[in-house]
Design a protein around this nucleic acid. Structure first.
Length: 324
DNA sequence: AATATAGTCAACCGCGGTAGC
DNA sequence: AGCTACCGCGGTTGACTATAT
């Protein structure tokens, strides 16, 4: 019931359309409109089923179809709409004049989906992937993907290098993932927990800097854009409220007033990491003179790649702190 | 140069919704 | 109310092309 038998009819041509067939279809629709798709093939002299004619027209021959690569703005729109609508390709296409649902669907599956995955974003939920082990194992690829800045460069007012944004987002997503998986434990990510001399994830994350003074929050800075890049990290939090907000870490900018201390601890931890000094005491006197080192500077450090590699090495060499 | 593999995308398949009888 | 035909949608396929080996 409900299923068209037209394509079951034998003798009807399938497969790629020839220019002659295209011309017949175009001429007929120009003269008469498509009317009943089922009746159209006979009227137009085509040995095709109506379904095939409709598809050919709507996806390829329609005069208002836009050809060519998707723009960054279209990328943004697709991502944002997909986060809202899911795989409602026709609905998404309705917001992209000249684009067909089929084209958008293909583009999503072949381009956007992969890029989101590489960036550690679940293309279905538009949230950081929760398979944290995979995320960590894929860090090198994630870093490479972080250089993909097409999704981030739409707004010309954005001054920050998109790669830095992506890296910050990546780190943020990792933190979220780790925190989600650890929310049942009160120790590892407790902001007041200070028993960390080593650079394990916990110390690094606990001591994440308050950078409100020196660093703008990428998610905040991008959130005002109509076509919000990486909406999964910004607007989607509002769209898909977490069941328990305690599960989520604060945004990259902390509201804490204890920023100087935390920033210094962050710097210290970075140095600890660089020197692999697992015995240093975080409470000992630091020789650093820099205060309020911007988070971006850390991420954008010339040695940032090695910085990230060391995170991986640390992660691998030390017991995973989060038991499920 | 030949072959294998990966990527792309037009087209098909099959299902759900619904209008009309 | 039940059946049928039709439309539109989303998932999948497979041919074609590009790139790697």
């Amino acid at each position: 019931m409900g299923r068209s038998p037209c394509c079951d009819e034998s003798g009807l041509k399938k497969g790629p359309w020839t220019p002659e067939e295209d011309q017949k279809l175009i001429n007929h629709i120009r003269k008469h409109g498509h009317g009943s798709w089922r009746a159209l093939p006979k009227q137009a002299g085509l040995n095709r089923c109506g379904k095939s004619c409709r598809l050919r027209w709507t996806n390829y021959l329609r005069p208002d179809i836009k050809r060519g690569n998707f723009t960054a703005e279209e990328d943004q729109t697709i991502i944002n709409l997909h986060s809202l609508l899911g795989n409602k390709w026709s609905s998404i296409a309705g917001h992209l004049p000249g684009r067909t649902d089929n084209e958008i669907k293909n583009y999503w599956n072949t381009h956007i989906r992969k890029k989101l995955l590489q960036m550690g974003i679940d293309p279905v939920t538009h949230r950081p992937r929760t398979d944290h082990l995979n995320v960590l194992a894929a860090l090198p690829q994630l870093l490479a993907a972080a250089n993909f800045n097409n999704l981030l460069t739409l707004n010309q007012n954005i001054q920050l290098d998109a790669t830095s944004v992506a890296k910050a987002q990546l780190l943020h997503s990792m933190i979220q993932v780790l925190n989600i998986n650890n929310h049942t434990s009160s120790s590892s990510f407790n902001i007041h927990h200070t028993n960390n001399n080593n650079f394990g994830q916990s110390s690094f994350l606990e001591n994440r800097p308050n950078i409100s003074e020196n660093l703008y929050d990428p998610t905040e800075s991008l959130s005002h854009i109509d076509h919000q890049p990486l909406g999964s990290f910004s607007s989607l939090h509002g769209l898909f409220p977490h069941q328990n907000d305690q599960d989520m870490i604060p945004p990259l900018i902390s509201a804490s007033s204890d920023e100087s201390k935390q920033t210094q601890m962050m710097i210290k931890n970075k140095e600890i990491l660089k020197h692999s000094d697992h015995t240093s005491n975080p409470s000992s006197t630091s020789t650093f003179t820099q205060d309020h080192q911007p988070w971006c500077d850390i991420i954008d450090d010339e040695a940032s790649d090695s910085f990230w590699k060391e995170i991986i090495e640390q992660t691998c060499s030390e017991p995973w702190p989060f038991r499920e």
